[in-house]
Design a protein around this nucleic acid. Sequence first.
DNA 1: ATGAAAGCGCTAACAC
DNA 2: GTGTTAGCGCTTTCAT
Lengths: 345, 345
Amino acid sequence: MTQVPPIPPRRQLTLRDVSEESGVSEMTVSRVLRNRGDVSEATRKKVQEAAKRMGYVPNKIAGALASSQVNLVAVIIPSLSNMVFPEVMTGISEVLDNTDLQPVVGVTNYRPEREEDVLYEMLSWRPSGVIIAGLEHSDASRAMLRASGIPVVEIMDVDGEAVDSVVGISHRRAGREMANAIVKQGYERIGFLGTKMPLDFRARKRFEGFTEALAKTGLEVVAQEFYEGGSALVKGREMTEAILSRDPDLDFLYYSNDMIGAGGLLYCLEKGMDVPGRIGMAGFNGVEFLRGLPKQLATMDAGRAEIGRAAAQIIVDRTTGKDTQGGKRIELTPKLQPGDTLRRY
Amino acid sequence: MTQVPPIPPRRQLTLRDVSEESGVSEMTVSRVLRNRGDVSEATRKKVQEAAKRMGYVPNKIAGALASSQVNLVAVIIPSLSNMVFPEVMTGISEVLDNTDLQPVVGVTNYRPEREEDVLYEMLSWRPSGVIIAGLEHSDASRAMLRASGIPVVEIMDVDGEAVDSVVGISHRRAGREMANAIVKQGYERIGFLGTKMPLDFRARKRFEGFTEALAKTGLEVVAQEFYEGGSALVKGREMTEAILSRDPDLDFLYYSNDMIGAGGLLYCLEKGMDVPGRIGMAGFNGVEFLRGLPKQLATMDAGRAEIGRAAAQIIVDRTTGKDTQGGKRIELTPKLQPGDTLRRY
DNA sequence: ATGAAAGCGCTAACAC
DNA sequence: GTGTTAGCGCTTTCAT
């Protein structure tokens, strides 16, 4: 076996190196590498070959500084682990893949201070736009967003005031519509199971809309159960067991997300309960995952991929100058999916 | 309707602006903002207030160019949607959160050309390190990694040759150990269900190890089923139904991941099959999600969070100069979790 | 079609 | 403890 040559003491390769190697001026090398301006076929070829041979990778930092153009879109979301944001990301990527913009993800773990830090950090890279989950931000975060001078799209939620543009659904309305659907099916003793997280504003809004709509029909949530951390599927199970042993005559369980709903559904089916006859159930999100369960949990699709697509499109349009306005507002309609667990009659 | 005022031609705020506003030299402002060097309490306060008041956000691009230091770690993974990489990310973040390094994620969708692009793009930002999934990369990607001169950690898999450092498990061995555990329980007519993706090298290695170990005991995989795309849970169901209708006397099903395994398990339980008496089942990954199922699917934990932690630590140690070597190799041991579906006796 | 000069906004290195 | 100077590697602009 031949000896691998020792790794050369590596200075970073620069345009100048490629320039010298190819005998073409730095400027022309730059043009070739960016496909900008007129360059003769001959020199183009010479440069490309030299660059490839040397393994030259341009320094975007220098490029960005010189051109004050950064083809990055900051995407700031609370979490990666709950199926919902990966889907939003998919939508965003779908659109950005056709442009020269690139998403860069920051995760806040639902903590406002963390959001502030992540935002500060990302803005300091001077991205071309920001897509950020939710409408609730610290004053400092809002100020940064406004001061940034770049297009900002707040996503997921439309119940509140946006800094610039917004794409999402009304979670209050989603809660209301679910309540109405449940009541319409004749369920009356309704329990709510959700997350304890005080900072999941969208879950809270759904709950508010839900209770509000119930109240209008003279009903109320007769039992509640909250959880924190852990495997949502397991928690769904445990909470369901807990709430039903406290209130055995509940006839409907509304879960603040599909994952705990799925856990609850599995639990009830195992116990041999008649779903949806004896007890109905519903979740929220419309995660694809549900389709593999023994029964289809009723849910409400928040159109996450679509939200991602629309948000990205707004950034693209602003960046390319196709749109110069900003302040767009796109409200999507959550779709009720009754599945098999919300049909009493 | 009033005319929207034209967007103020916002020049970005610079150190110079803060300098003028606070009456302190640019250099000292820079020192304050980076907490570097000695600055009197008085000037520090003056500067901080000015900066805050003006909403100044430093330009990291300029900073990075000047200092040739970029506190970013490129993390390149095939997918975000399958629970496994979010967990790796958690491990990485855990470690990096105590440093001033920041992860930046790129997703390749299991496509080598895409990996090459993402890598090129990320390297052009001159990050402090790279964490990249898998050991299989195009020649160009390998060349870029080597030429980058920064610490590189390949993760998940150790069966192959690393560019620099590597942290992971042996998937071949994981496959072998699962085969042996199955045979030990007396199962003999074994089916395999997996993904069609020819580019999921780790799944393939598990399969190879699996068949190899079976062969040693005189057994072989008597039926196979592959899928592509779609909801894994649903696919698991469908494939299981398909394979069992073709080969009704299979007595064990080995799934290449937990999600399809879970679908299969739910299917078998619904059909009232005796699991694990009549038929045993196992998956791979040890996703937390499984704990919410009616029965615990046997699986093998790949220690994903730990992989993330170890990889990040290698980068941190190299970056801080605590370690100067590189070429580290950390092989973790996958842990068999027999659950409830792999116990015949 | 190609090149030369002048920065982009910041920080390293050195003076004071 | 604070200021000055000289770039970092690229692109913009203008000249040729």
